[in-house]
Nucleic acid binder design. Structure first.
Lengths: 189, 189
DNA sequence: CTCTTGTCGAACACCAGTGTACGAGTTACC
DNA sequence: GGTAACTCGTACACTGGTGTTCGACAAGAG
């Protein structure tokens, strides 16, 4: 693709649209292209000039969100006691989950089925690796599939995000609650 | 209300609409009133004659679903060892969760915020009572709020439903997985 | 400085859904 | 068998989104 030759203002607009979309969709998963274009300080036509459809825009936003998330998660120290590593991973992960909660909803009903999971491959692999190491070292249970444990972690974190959103727990409580729950749920014997 | 005086065919139609709506919405949370009316073998106008809006129809369906669910759950023996009681409760609950999964989604984006939780008051209270008894008897942990534990149970069950829906686990595996996970997550010490 | 690339707003066609109006027809009730 | 309650299909008005087209205009690249 000769996408390399893109005029400077076009690149600026694309970036503006992406960040505006991330903001809007995080506030309201049903945000329209008009809302997003307006928030980006750009005409709706310009938006469609860069993204052929609302779905492809959401896909791009999602890809970007995962990428920046991965940047954060990549810096988490996952060595040492797997239980403490899990704690550190939860600490970083759950904030991302909370932040991108609404965006996930938008993706789920605009993107083809399976696409969301596909884009989650990297973060999921990271969790899986840690869990498997913990199993090898005998601190995590082996009587349930790793994929199930990953799913439990995912759902507990999203549940916490909902609880915060509903005002039933505070942001500070979330990480310790999640960690305490998962460590108990995952431990061996 | 003199609703007592309702012609027989009207009552039949109302019932048909409710069950058709439950079916349609369970298949597709975005099912339209046309779809539902068609499935009920009834004109769309008739539907609106009984339910002033799509939202109120969904509310009625949801109320009915909760009621029939409560009927099932009311028969679960919650006495004896709280851990075994939890297992029995999970066994009955998770199937309802799986069955009404999509209906819940429909309710969540058609009903006013808080309404869904409001209607869940009874089943939630049942779980809470069991958990508190387990705490009193020293078998369930007390270092986390009961409401959090209830939320964990809720989210793990819904997560299981998603896994089934995506074909990653089978219906048979779900209950044991859920129970094994929750018992570990909830146990004291 | 010119020419390509991009932007803008307004307008348009389109679609899918919700809720209402009407008038003719049917069904239960007494 | 008469009457009130109910149903039906069609048609309509309205809403709110998506995606496209147009022509005039602005801005960056060489």
């Amino acid at each position: 693709m000769a996408v390399t030759t893109r005029r400077a203002d076009a690149q600026r607009n694309i970036a503006a649209i992406l960040t505006a979309a991330a903001e809007c969709l995080s506030r309201d998963p049903a945000a329209s292209t008009s809302d997003i274009a307006k928030a980006a300080g750009v005409g709706r036509v310009t938006l469609y000039g860069h993204f052929p459809s609302r779905a492809e825009l959401i896909d791009a936003v999602f890809v970007q969100a995962i990428a920046t998330g991965e940047e954060t998660l990549g810096q988490v120290d996952l060595t040492g006691d797997p239980r403490e590593a899990l704690g550190r991973l939860v600490e970083s992960s759950w904030q991302l989950v909370d932040q991108y909660r609404a965006l996930l909803l938008a993706a789920q009903d605009s993107l083809p089925p399976g696409r969301v999971r596909e884009l989650h491959a990297d973060p999921m692999a990271r969790v899986e690796r840690l869990l498997e190491r913990g199993r090898d070292e005998g601190v995590f249970r082996t009587d349930l599939p790793t994929s199930w444990l990953v799913s439990v972690m995912h759902n507990v974190m999203h549940g916490a995000a909902s609880e915060i959103h509903a005002g039933r727990i505070t942001s500070d409580q979330a990480a310790p609650y999640i960690t305490a729950t998962l460590l108990a749920a995952f431990r061996s014997d």
